[in-house]
Design a protein around this nucleic acid. Structure first.
Length: 507
RNA sequence: CGGGAUGUAGCGCAGUCCGGUUAGCGCGCACGGUUCGGGACCGUGAGGUCGGAAGUUCGAAUCUUCUCAUCCCGACCA
């Protein structure tokens, strides 16, 4: 009988995936639930990841001509009422401000007072209030395209919340653009989708499948919604972000019009697109293992943890001096055009405790420095993409010289691992029985990790879509953009179909 | 908002059925010592209005009623 190997995170992924996810976040100290229901406190280690995501995307947005602005948190209720589908989609989850102050209730507490004449909605998304501004900003075709982005918080009063994946308040960016022609607007929608997928794959190391949403999964008020979906390690799909072609829907209700070259007034075409702190949840669930978080080096708050090892004061002096040299050498290096960030862990605790601490935090490289390393002019390195025990000695100069390559190698290796996992659990299924089997756990009491992405035909009918949803809890996640057009038969009803789509259970 | 469960120290729990000294245990935390190259150990200590309110009782974490909150399962979602 083999004794179960101790893992840093318990339960393991296989034992209880949702609990594992929460424990990884807790062990890495990324975030915690707050006193306010459904809201989270993002702690420094988690927030720095968000800052890195934000800064990188912000650069990409600016490179493609977008400018940042900021619009109010509060939206007059009347604005919100203008787009019927939009209201329908968001009404149930809005926080509403009805009063403007608090008064002494005479019993040591406070009561609300100052009822507002028009109630304010705390933005769940800003199409309406930004649309109202755009209507004033735009007069001529010369004002177009208008390419605006904002970094903000939004509130959606969700019934069930989970750290990073779905919280009542979350951080995001929302791009809002206006174009003279439909073609320009569609092109913008797809451009931003490409930027998102590039970022998600190359920075977060998460392989995604991009494409269109079906009508039923569309953003409320959009003509077309594009998405990119990632497979988590429980094989469920996570919508990592969306880009919407809004057509003339918002232009018509907010009166976003311009005079064209001929002097004729026309409605303008708008888009919106966003990604959120959910990306951090996607990162956690894609890469982490039973020993805790694994952060892709390109977004890591810190790249290297150095753990000094010594017993006596003389050893401490020598080790710290050697560590100082190493730190200086590393600081002169660049990875991904940025400084390499190093943590020297000189806390008063054991070295193995420190080692596990940094493993759980997901730092890409751990370095142990002790008297032996000084003798050999080496460092002792562990990589987070390898097993905790798999550590090796390497010459200090060589380490300093090659550290950018090592980091990029870790970045690539976790991407490839995730891609392999996604491929392994994406199956072409053309038979309803097999389809049902694919999405049915063997143990219905305590469902094991099962299923994945079913790459199957869909006739395009809403009936078939709702049948799989009702019977299996499975939805069409995405109609992939490339390479899936082929003749076949709908896996549900058997009617002719001209393309495969991705079906999956999802978050 | 429907169905189920749970509220006891920072975290995880026992104690509740069957009321009875000063409410326990593990982890964590603080201090002292021995340790420290793979999750250390010993000793000492701090920390609780037992979710809240009312009731029954000589006596309530324990019984009754009400209430609040959280979690899980549904419907909704980045």
């Amino acid at each position: 009988m083999s004794k179960k190997q101790r893992t840093a995170i318990e339960p393991t992924r296989a034992e209880d995936y949702p609990q594992w996810y929460l424990n990884v976040i807790k062990a890495a100290d990324l975030a915690e639930n707050s006193e306010v229901r459904g809201c989270m406190v993002i702690k420094p280690w988690g927030y720095t990841i968000w800052e890195n995501i934000r800064d990188t995307l912000d650069g990409m947005f600016k490179e493609t001509g977008h400018k940042n602005a900021y619009f109010p948190l509060f939206i007059p209720k009347s604005y919100f009422e203008k787009e019927a589908k939009h209201v329908e989609g968001f009404a149930k989850e809005c926080a509403v401000v009805t009063h403007s102050r608090l008064e002494d209730d005479g019993e040591g507490g406070l009561k609300v007072a100052g009822k507002l004449t028009e109630e304010l909605i705390v933005r769940p998304t800003s199409e309406t209030i930004i649309g109202a501004s755009f209507a004033r900003w735009i007069n001529s075709y010369r004002d177009l395209p208008l390419l605006i982005n904002q970094w903000a918080n939004v509130v959606r009063w969700e019934m069930r919340t989970r750290l990073f994946l779905r919280t009542a308040e979350f951080l995001w960016q929302e791009g809002h653009t206006v174009h003279a022609t439909k073609e320009d607007a569609v092109e913008e929608t797809l451009r931003m989708l490409d930027i998102y997928t590039k970022f998600t794959e190359e920075w977060l190391a998460i392989p995604v499948i991009k494409g269109e949403k079906t009508e039923s999964e569309r953003f409320p008020g959009a003509e077309n919604t594009y998405t990119f979906e990632a497979m988590m390690q429980d094989r469920k799909a996570l919508q990592a972000g969306t880009s919407h072609f809004l057509g003339l829907n918002f232009a018509k209700v907010f009166d976003i019009k311009f005079q064209n070259r001929e002097g004729v007034e026309e409605y303008a075409w708008t888009t919106s697109w966003g990604v959120t702190t959910r990306l951090i949840g996607a990162m956690v669930m894609t890469h982490s293992d039973d020993d805790g978080l694994i952060i892709p080096p390109r977004v890591a708050p810190s790249h290297i943890a150095i753990i000094p090892i010594y017993r006596s004061e003389e050893e401490e002096k020598a080790v710290m001096e050697y560590v100082g040299k190493l730190v200086d050498g590393l600081k002169a290096q660049r990875y991904d055009e940025k400084r390499i960030i190093v943590e020297v862990d000189n806390r008063d605790t054991t070295s193995s405790e420190k080692g596990w601490y940094w493993i759980k935090k997901g730092i890409p490289i751990r370095i142990e420095i002790g008297p032996r390393d000084i003798e050999n002019n080496s460092v002792f390195m562990g990589r987070r993409d390898l097993s905790p025990k798999e550590k090796k000695s390497i010459q200090m100069d060589e380490f300093i010289q090659t550290v950018p390559d090592i980091l990029q190698d870790i970045q690539n290796s976790i991407y490839n691992r995730a891609l392999e996992y996604q491929k392994e659990h994406t199956k072409k299924i053309d038979d309803w029985k097999k389809f049902v089997q694919f999405f049915t756990p063997k143990n219905s009491e305590k469902p094991e990790i099962h299923g994945g992405f079913a790459h199957s035909h869909w006739c395009g009918s809403a009936e078939c879509e709702s049948k799989v949803k009702d019977e299996l809890g499975v939805t069409v996640r995405v109609i992939p953009s490339d390479g899936d057009e082929e003749a076949g038969h709908c896996v549900v009803c058997g009617e002719p179909s001209n393309r495969r789509v991705i079906y999956a259970k999802s978050y």
